[in-house]
Structure formats: structure tokens, C-alpha cells
Write a protein that binds this DNA or RNA. Structure first.
Length: 477
RNA sequence: CGGGGUAUAGCCUAGUGGCUAAGGCGCCUGCUUUGGGAGCAGGAGAUCGCAGGUUCAAGUCCUGCUACCCCGACCA
């Protein structure tokens, strides 16, 4: 009866690793920093993919695939881009038994190879907008890795779009950020703040980076998705011009946007508890598990009764039968709770006699005794309610841990002595203050939230000069 | 890259230079069980991280190497 999961209160990072390993989402690989995504984890990625992919198609995007190997020289064409990525590149120098003429980089992101192709494909405004997305793996040689949150190789999607005008490209950037927000909240039940990143936190090569930012249960922020307005930076680097409606030549305007397997980390750290994984029904691989309880003398009757419930539920829901004789019911309860099964249906002799079943919610642990004829409708209600309840619970948690702080002493105390969280503070806009704050507290600007940058009155929390922005400060992953 | 730590069965751990390396979890077989991680009996499973050295004798002492973990630096 060894406790398998370290409680969050004891060590949040141990808890996180215990969940990943015990819920069989992923395992360590022989290569440092890489992980193997197991079927239960990959099912989450498939749910993320299928939901997002529909949303991308609905907004006019098509999927394509570009190669993983990129000529090293491509990365060097955009000055900021190469500076941002060079320390974390993995480079192939030998292949086919000899040294290569030019080293090939394993893609850390695909802007360069995609824009080298866009040069061939775009000649006129009639070729625009070009709205492509790709589902792919990328490699970034990070010094310190964590399962799902930051691994050497990870899976993601990257959208790369080309437009006639700056306005249109910016509109696309914001549109896709909103798609991410809708997805994160509607499907993953992870509430997110949207806004623009400070210049020091933006993507290397972008004019502006926008992000969805979530709060985890340890009150740290997690960047869950980004959308970049690239201006004409890559068009200029790869000389991608087009003939305008007026017959002139202009560089193409661009956006790029992505979310990754990091979202699975966000899911885990937003909803799960000390018993294991908790998943919103819309991304859970199954809806419910059916666990019969019987003695030798009534085994057949109980299983028959359980089967009759299964038959009805299987028409509408994704149900797992766990009839395995070698484990006790109690063991199964714990095991399925660990794996994040949204609902458990217990069927024992007493339920059989009363023509009922016991439905148990994973999020609240609530046991609901239900008449045979109402099991299907009740399950439907529970799943819908759980989806909403998880989002609301996470939103309430974030709000409870978000504070307006505009006094620097208080600010320092909040991050250095208190439990931390999100600080809403006024900021003068200078990188110096941002750096000073990071030095003193390890907190960074997560986002300058939309709709809250009007009528800024007051002074910077750090330097007391006139404030330009309202910023969300937090320690982050 | 810097500082610290660890390395014994799939996992966790015991092992004072001395006989055939011990236990728990898990796994396999059988029987009994089953409403919150069941019990009994039997069984399989180890080049003690790698390479050298000291010694009559090394899991244990010494040297070197490697891997992993923690802290720091780094990290759209």
C-alpha cells in the first residue's frame, strides 16, 4: 500500500513527475531530455490535434509538410532569429559515410525552410493569402528539460501565413491567438490570459509575440501557446516579394503560431490532484469505466447486469469494461483515478437488487446512485457538468491568486516571501525595469493583457516613472 | 558550463574487506478472495554502472571514466 504519488504540498515537481509516470502518459527515453509518449499520453495529443485541426480548417488553413533537415545557412539569414536559436540547435555534420558540404540543422521551427519555399510560390497578390499549417516534431537542445513542459524533441503544430498587408497579417495573428484561447478554455478547460509579450520575451525574428498564458496549481505561469506577427522580417531575409494590386513590388507580410505537447503539461498541472490525473471529458481518451463487484456465488448475475448497462452506454459513450478478476475493486478504483478516468460506474449485488448503479465523478469524488433507466442521461449530465466545473474551478483559482500590486516593497515581498501568483502591476515599458525585477524576484512579464492598456494612470511599480502598460508579472515555467 | 549527490533484480532499499548478495513492491503458477490498493503456498528474475588497481579475499578500499538526479547559469 505504498503511496505512489507525492502530495503536491510536499513537492510539486515530484508530484508532477509521479503523475506523468504513474498515469502512463510518458516515460524517460535512453536519450537525455527526450521522452517516450505512451498510448495514454498520445491519446491526449490526438484529442488536441483533432480538435485544433478542425478549427484551423474552419478558418481557411491547409496542412502541408516541410522537411526536418534545414541548411544551416538558412537559419543565419534572419539576424535575430539565428541569435535566438543558435545555442539550442542540433546539427548534422556527417551523413552517408562522409562529412557534408553544408551542415544540416534539425528544425527548431520551420520559418526559414518555409519562407525559402514561399519565395517560389508567391509572385502576385493573387497568390495571397497563403495559409499553411504543419503538424511536426522539432528539436531544441535545452539545458534543463521536464516531461511535456520542455523536452529536447517535442511535437507541435506551426502555422505559417503570408499576406498582402500588415493589417491583414496582424489580424491573422490575433485571430489564431483567439482560436487558441477558445480551444484551451472550451476543450482543455484551461483558462488563459491573452495579450502581447514584452520585447525581451518575444520570439526571435518577430515584431510582436502574442501568447495565451495559464496559471498552474503552484501559482506559476505557463505559456501555453504563441502567435507571432513577423512583419516583413522573413520576407526580406528570403526575398519574398509580390506584385501588388497597384502593380508595384512589395515584401510579403507574415504570421506564425504554434502550440505543442506542452499543452499536456498544462492539462496535468491545471486539473490533477494528489490521487492522480484529472482530465476534462472532452480530451479524456474514455468517458467511464465499468467496475463490477461480486462474490463467487453471484458472479454470473452481476456480470450479466453489468453487461446490460454496458450495452446501453456503449451506444453513446466510450466505456471501458474492467472485469479483470485478478484485481480487487478497491485496487481498480485507485488505478483508474490515477489515470484520470472521468467517471467510474460501480455495479455490485446491492445495485443489481435495486436495479441501480453508482456513478462516481473523478473531479469531486461525489457518488451518485442512479436508477437503471437514468444511467445514460445521468452520465451525459455528469460529463457536461465536469467539463464546465473544471474550467470554473481553475478560473477561480487563478483569480484568487491574482493581485493588483503597485508598491515595489509589496511586490518584492509577494514574490520573495509570499506564495506568489500573478501580480497585476503598472510598468513604464523599459527593459531595465523588467530586468531589474527579474533579477530581484525571478518574476517576468508574462503578458500585457488586451483591453487593459487604455487609460493607464499611475507610475511604474519599479522605477516610479509614468507607467505605460499594465503587466502580468509571475514566475514561470 | 560551475557546485553537490547517487549508481546493488523491472521499481524501492539492506549489505561491518570473509561462506551461495538479503528484503519489500511488482511479475509468473495454483488455491482462497472481491462495496477503497486482499491472503496463503510455490516460482522466475543480479555480468553489484564501466575500466583498472590494492589484497590470500572487493558490492565494500583506491584511481580514472560514464550515466542520471538536485542546486545555479541558460531557456519563442
Amino acid at each position: 500500500m505504498a503511496e505512489k504519488i507525492t502530495p503536491r504540498s510536499e513537492s510539486y515537481s515530484d508530484w508532477y513527475v509521479d503523475i506523468v509516470l504513474n498515469a502512463k502518459l510518458a516515460d524517460y527515453s535512453p536519450v537525455k531530455g527526450c521522452m517516450v509518449i505512451r498510448p495514454r499520453g498520445y491519446a491526449l495529443w490526438e484529442a488536441i490535434q483533432s480538435n485544433l485541426d478542425k478549427m484551423f480548417k474552419a478558418t481557411g488553413h491547409s496542412n502541408a509538410y516541410f522537411p526536418m533537415l534545414i541548411p544551416e545557412s538558412f537559419l543565419k539569414k534572419e539576424a535575430e532569429h539565428v541569435e535566438g536559436f543558435s545555442p539550442e540547435l542540433a546539427v548534422v555534420t556527417h551523413a552517408g559515410g562522409s562529412e557534408l558540404e553544408e551542415p544540416l540543422v534539425l528544425r527548431p521551427t520551420s520559418e526559414t525552410i518555409i519562407w525559402s519555399m514561399y519565395k517560389k510560390w508567391i509572385q502576385s497578390y493573387r497568390d495571397l493569402p497563403l495559409l499553411l499549417n504543419q503538424w511536426a516534431n522539432v528539436i531544441r537542445w535545452e539545458k534543463r528539460t521536464r516531461m511535456f513542459l520542455r523536452t529536447t524533441e517535442f511535437l507541435w503544430q506551426e502555422g505559417h501565413t503570408a499576406h498582402e498587408t500588415s493589417e491583414e497579417a496582424e489580424e491573422e495573428t490575433i485571430k489564431m491567438l483567439n482560436v487558441y484561447k477558445e480551444f484551451a478554455e472550451g476543450i482543455l478547460a484551461v483558462p488563459v490570459l491573452t495579450g502581447v509579450k514584452s520585447q525581451s520575451e518575444k520570439f526571435a525574428g518577430a515584431i510582436n509575440t502574442y501568447a495565451i498564458e495559464a496559471m498552474m496549481q503552484d501559482k506559476k505561469a505557463l505559456q501555453a501557446g504563441t502567435s507571432h506577427f513577423l512583419g516583413q522580417n522573413f520576407a526580406k531575409a528570403f526575398d519574398v516579394t509580390f506584385q501588388t494590386r497597384e502593380g508595384k513590388l512589395d515584401y510579403v507580410w507574415a504570421s506564425s503560431w504554434g502550440v505543442s505537447t506542452r499543452l499536456i503539461g498544462a492539462l496535468i498541472m491545471t486539473h490533477s490532484d494528489d490521487k492522480g490525473l484529472v482530465l476534462p471529458p472532452k480530451v479524456a481518451p474514455q468517458d467511464a469505466v465499468l467496475i463490477p463487484i461480486y462474490k463467487a456465488k453471484n458472479k454470473d448475475e452481476v456480470l450479466d447486469y453489468a453487461d446490460s448497462i454496458y450495452k446501453i452506454l456503449a451506444e453513446k459513450f466510450r466505456i471501458v469494461k474492467d472485469y479483470d478478476d485478478t484485481n480487487s475493486p478497491g485496487w481498480k478504483y485507485s488505478e483508474w483515478e490515477m489515470c484520470g478516468m472521468p467517471v467510474r460506474i460501480e455495479v455490485g449485488p446491492r445495485d443489481m437488487e435495486n436495479r441501480k448503479a453508482v456513478l462516481v465523478r473523478r473531479d469531486s469524488g461525489e457518488k451518485i446512485f442512479v436508477e437503471f433507466d437514468k444511467i445514460s442521461d445521468t452520465l451525459d449530465e455528469i460529463l457536461k457538468d465536469m467539463q464546465v466545473a473544471l474550467l470554473e474551478k481553475a478560473r477561480a483559482y487563478r483569480e484568487e491568486n491574482t493581485f493588483e500590486i503597485n508598491n515595489y516593497d509589496e511586490f518584492l515581498k509577494f514574490f520573495n516571501e509570499g506564495e506568489g501568483g500573478f501580480a497585476e502591476s503598472l510598468w513604464c515599458g523599459s527593459g531595465e525595469c523588467e530586468a531589474k525585477i527579474k533579477e530581484a524576484t525571478k518574476a517576468t512579464i508574462r503578458v500585457l493583457p488586451f483591453d487593459r492598456q487604455e487609460n493607464i494612470e499611475g507610475t511604474c511599480v519599479c522605477c516610479n516613472k509614468k507607467a505605460k502598460n499594465l503587466a502580468i508579472f509571475a514566475k514561470s515555467y
